[in-house]
Amino acid sequence: MYHKTLSYRIFNTLNTSGLILLAIVCIIPLWHVLAISFSAKSAADANLVGLWPVDFTTEAYKKTINNPVFLGSILVSIKRTIIGTAITLVLAFLAAYPLSKESTVFKARTIYAWIFVFTMVFNGGLVPFYIVIQKLHLMNSFWVLVLPGAVNVYLTILMLNFFRGIPKELEEAALIDGAGHFRTLFTIFLPVSLPAIATLALFSMVFHWNSWFDGLLYLHDAKSQPLATFLQTVVIQRDMSTMSMSPKEMELLSQKTVNAAQIFIGALPILVVYPFLQKYFVKGLVLGSVKE
């Protein structure tokens, strides 16, 4: 048994401490942002905050919570993430199944596959996209956040590759039993691809949670815009040389502490969801148990 050997134990200790160190290096920036969010404004503006708040205050959070636009945008983001992820998953799950077939079984698959991949690399740019959105009357509608990006080719291809890893015998047995392709997909493939679906869901959720440009351009009302759009408008640094502002306005623009609080609250939901999805791809129970 390798677990007992000395070299393995040494490796294990080194590995564990190394990875923990790495984890700490990764948490520091967010920690720094958190420290700023709890600091006094004067210290934050002077860049005096390191890893611990200076003159601890929760003022920034009070201001954030009192901002109705911020809270409203969180709701929009949650709605878009749930609906958008659901649609993307269904489409990818459906399309990946036939695409995962050998071309001897499904001849057209290769054409379809390239039609899909082509869109990953080429796009018409902003102008025609805007016109399409307008012609479809999606402008200023919630669905503009969800429908245009509904097909995620990258995720479809990942799904397709996971399907290929599923033993052929499973599918053949089902087909021999007289099940159609749809039934095979939902009764045989669905349960064994939960780790893959969890992965896809995570990617799709992160994508929706972080997208800001569509909300900015296609939704006209700040109240209906998602959180990422809102955050983008507060974090970005602006060129002051072209317009005159009073010191009061400059102060409003440079609320480092409030921005930090908003960034932190903005990242929170996706961090909370992560551990729940994580369990699916940390251990490969599902597929293993089926195979036994």
Partner: peptide, 29 residues
């Protein structure tokens, strides 16, 4: 024989045509 396959791809295909291929025409810009 393969109609279920085509049917499964169809929804994605429609989305791609509308939101990817139609706008691509403007690459002539």
């Amino acid at each position: 024989r393969n109609w279920p396959f085509h049917l499964m791809i169809l929804p994605s295909l429609i989305f791609l045509i509308v939101f990817s291929y139609v706008p691509m025409a403007w690459i002539v810009m």
